[in-house]
Nucleic acid binder design. Structure first.
Length: 401
DNA sequence: GCGCAAATAT
DNA sequence: AATATTTGCG
């Protein structure tokens, strides 16, 4: 990502120059620049190709850029003059409308050729494309001042392939997203629009319909719900809620969902996510014991809790604007923070969240399952949610077209 | 409504 | 093969 973003900038700059100064003298210089630029782009593309699935948009962008550049070069070669007025050739803006046919094909072919495996690993370390993913449009709601300052930019014209709800037996239509934009509902309780992945910029619709749409009108019960994609944004909300509720172990799906204020989000989805979260959060357990190896740990165990690499949140913020249908995995930014969070980093929002649940009359869990309340085991209790730490270049953000 | 675990989908 | 999500159950 990093790379591509810088490229883009470069690109923009170039564009400006091109259109601005028409000095013929610069011609050759420009040509060279263009070449270099193109090379850089291609190299970048090579890298990204590995993630063509995760970063389709990036690929598109790059391919487009490359094509444009190529065209530019070609046309320039033809009429050396025209460079001046620039306009014609291309560069223009990066409105990721559609794929660039030719390059697209190329990319597809190549991507198949490449054996991702090895390369991928390397890349994973250096690039944080992880959190890439469909980040649906979100509408912050009032009560949340939190960390979200550097919120994402919304998808700049990035669209995601709809998650088709396909079913083995018989399935025809599916989820088509393009309801009549009608929305006066907003009113008081602003909620986040979460339509798993698919969704366009300011795509708002009747709150109610959304869910139905998302799941595709499945008249019969046979159809499986379309998978809810937990975008970083969503997860952040989740964590936030968790925090407010006092940890993943005391928080209950319903409560969480309510705090998240994400419409379309169901209890079950939250429940499920919570379950997973709890799992990941707890004992690092067996899996990756292979310590003796060379690789510096990608995660650390702090106080018995799994702590992911750097910041998940941060990265997200930086990339949020992008798109892609990347699998929205890896979003776990567990948390571990014993009761003393002296680090100034988090202080801000952290504190204000009190455990507002133990109020006088709140039978947390009405049913016969109060067993959970006692964190005596000491496994979690100390759980805290560390959301972010603003920083990191949000360069990508500007990409949003 | 909740948590767990099996079933599925990716 | 590993995970993420969805379902089914108590």
């Amino acid at each position: 990502m990093e790379a591509s973003s810088s490229i883009i900038h470069h690109h923009r700059r170039t564009t400006v120059e091109e259109s601005e100064s028409a000095m013929v003298d610069n011609f050759s210089e420009k040509m060279k620049k263009c070449q270099d630029y193109m090379e850089a782009l291609e190299e970048e593309r090579r890298k990204i190709q590995v993630f063509h699935r995760e970063l389709p948009l990036s690929l598109d962008l790059i391919n487009q850029a490359i094509d444009n550049c190529r065209q530019q070069l070609e046309s320039s070669a033809d009429f050396e003059e025209q460079t001046t007025s620039s306009e014609g050739p291309v560069l223009e803006e990066f409105i990721p409308l559609k794929r660039t046919s030719s390059s697209d094909l190329r990319q597809l072919q190549k991507s198949k050729e490449i054996k991702v495996s090895n390369n991928k690993l390397d890349w994973l370390k250096s690039v944080q494309l992880w959190n890439q993913n469909p980040d649906p449009v979100l509408k912050e709601d009032s009560p949340r001042k939190t960390t979200t300052v550097l919120e994402s930019k919304k998808n700049g014209g990035a669209f995601h392939p709809f998650h088709k709800a396909k079913i083995p037996t018989t399935q025809t239509t599916t989820t088509t997203t393009t309801p009549p934009a009608s929305m006066a509902t907003s009113s008081t309780t602003e909620t986040v629009n979460e339509s798993g992945g698919e969704n366009q910029n300011s795509n708002r619709r009747g709150e109610d319909q959304k869910e139905r749409e998302r799941q595709g009108v499945q008249s019969s019960s046979s159809l499986r719900k379309t998978r809810r994609c937990w975008s970083p944004e969503l997860h952040r909300r989740f964590l936030n809620a968790l925090q407010q509720l006092g940890g993943s172990h005391v928080a209950t799906p319903k409560q969480i969902r309510e705090l998240m204020k994400v419409d379309g989000l169901t209890n079950d989805e939250v429940k499920s996510h919570l379950q997973k979260y709890r799992l990941h959060t707890r004992r690092p357990s067996p899996t990756i014991h292979n310590n003796s190896n060379s690789q510096p740990p990608q995660f650390v165990v702090v106080g018995g809790i799994w702590v992911p690499p750097p910041e998940y949140t941060t990265a997200v913020a930086a990339t949020a604007g992008e798109s892609t249908q990347v699998s929205c995995n890896r979003v776990y930014a567990p948390v571990a923070a014993p009761p003393h969070q002296s680090s100034p980093l988090f202080s801000q929002q952290q504190q204000q969240n009190k455990k507002l649940q133990q109020s006088p009359t709140s039978p947390l869990h009405s049913d016969g399952k109060s067993s959970r309340a006692d964190h005596s085991l000491g496994d979690d209790e100390d759980e805290e949610v560390h959301l972010n730490s603003p920083s990191i270049s949000s360069s990508t953000a500007s990409l949003a077209l």
